[in-house]
């Protein structure tokens, strides 16, 4: 159990996918305007990460030993299908949310966080449960970063910014400061 918790916390805060590895920056810049959409975007990501993790583990265990060069191609196909399923589910269950997420929902396919998670999980030879812990940690980390950024940006709307800092520039600088803060988690596990 110990190593599962370790993998989860490590992927969530110590090596936060967005703030330490720069993964998933497109949604991080795009849908971090409001806490509501940020939370749901995070939930959609967690779902896709879970499906991708399970599929990647099956592929890695049963198929890829016979055809290692297919790794990247098979992973990306699995992720694209998982995103398609998520998209159809959300469209069915909550059309309002579907509209709010807009283009960023199909773009989860090209969210580097998902592919990175599958790739690293395979490279580190994680077991099925370890893979799931890794995927959930990564998803929780993405959601955490998105929500933190969204709550800052909601307040940012009431602040008078210098004209040159409006738009993406200030978001990147805030992300840098958040990232500095997250560096404080480094060394959380010393054993």
């Amino acid at each position: 159990m110990g190593d599962l918790a370790w993998i989860f916390i490590s992927a969530m805060v110590v090596n936060n996918f967005t703030l330490a590895y720069f993964l998933g920056l497109c949604p991080f810049m795009g849908v971090s305007g409001k806490i509501y959409t940020a939370l749901r975007m995070g939930a959609a990501n967690i779902f896709v990460l879970t499906v991708a993790s399970v599929c990647a583990w099956f592929l890695d265990t049963f198929v890829l030993p016979y055809a290692p060069f297919l790794k990247l191609i098979s992973f990306i196909l699995v992720i694209a299908s998982a995103v398609q399923i998520t998209e159809m589910t959300i469209k069915k269950l909550s059309p309002a949310l579907f509209r709010a997420l807009g283009i960023y929902l199909p773009l989860i396919t090209t969210n580097c966080a998902i592919l990175f998670m599958a790739w690293v999980q395979a490279n580190r030879g994680y077991s099925f449960l370890q893979g799931l812990a890794f995927a959930w940690g990564a998803g929780a980390g993405l959601t955490l970063a998105l929500v933190l950024m969204a709550s800052i940006r909601e307040d940012l709307e009431f602040v008078k910014l210098p004209a040159i800092a409006r738009g993406n520039a200030i978001v990147f600088i805030i992300a840098g400061i958040l990232s500095l803060a997250f560096m404080g988690f480094a060394g959380l596990f010393t054993s």
Binding site: I164, R166, A169, F172
Partner: peptide, 20 residues
Amino acid sequence: PPGGFFTIGFILLALNWWER
């Protein structure tokens, strides 16, 4: 990692200033 965010943030600031 923070340096990456800061660098692109400052490059964008400079570009915005230039455009303006």
